[in-house]
Amino acid sequence: MLEQLSGLPAEVLDLTSYRNDFQENFWRVDASWKLERQITFKEPSSPSWVAMAEGHWEKSLRLADELRAARAEHQRQLDRHGITQRRVRFVCEPPTSYLQWELHLLMIWAELGEEIRILPADTIAHLETHSALPEVVVLGDRSGHPVMYDITYTDGVLAGARKFTDIHLVASCRDEIRDHWRQGEDLLRYFPKKIADLPPPAPQGV
């Protein structure tokens, strides 16, 4: 069902509306499921990403690590609300500059409690005969009314989302994401083997 989302009607949210809607729904649910498929994005609002993109790798890693305290507080809030965050991240080898950078960031998230699994992108080639799977977040697992966002980008930069609330559609997509997640390798095991010792990535360009 995930590969069919682009052809289904949805509520279109611009960036501000998406962020507001996400925050309104996020703290009401028991879990979030995220699927990340694309291997190159741009995050100009992140100083760490900008440093990587400009070729300053050590500075980028230092800035990423400075996010640890805020992320730890975020995890404490999740724990108080009983919210579990799970993510499946599709990867390629060798990784793109963006992917190498993001996996360093996600390693911090994983160390603090987010449950992140890694899968090679070629494992879903049979699902991508027309286009790549979308970037999707599902809010809600066993409680509350589930909400799903098909996240949209313009030239690699976050632009908003398409929102779905049909219970059966959202449940079907959530189950697919869960299946991918179960098949994946824990980032805490994957990272030391595949990412930790790589040389600095090539500048991505801002």
Rank of each mutant, 00 (worst) to 15 (best):
W109N: 15
A110N: 02
G113A: 02
G113C: 01
E114L: 04
E114I: 15
I116L: 11
I118D: 05
I118H: 02
L119T: 10
P120R: 07
D122F: 02
D122Y: 09
I124V: 15
H126C: 01
L127S: 08
T129V: 12
H130D: 11
S131Y: 05
A132D: 03
L133A: 15
P134W: 09
V137Q: 13
L139V: 15
G140K: 14
G140R: 10
G140I: 05
D141P: 10
G144F: 01
G144A: 02
H145A: 13
H145C: 04
P146H: 10
V147H: 02
Y149T: 08
D150A: 09
D150L: 05
I151M: 10
Y153G: 04
T154P: 01
D155W: 14
G156V: 13
G156S: 09
L158W: 08
A159L: 11
A161P: 01
R162N: 10
R162V: 03
T165P: 01
T165V: 10
D166N: 10
I167N: 06
I167C: 00
H168I: 03
L169A: 07
L169N: 11
V170D: 04
S172K: 01
R174K: 02
D175N: 08
R178S: 08
R178H: 07
H180W: 02
H180F: 14
W181K: 08
R182W: 00
R182F: 05
G184D: 09
G184A: 07
E185C: 07
L187E: 12
R189P: 00
Y190R: 04
Y190W: 08
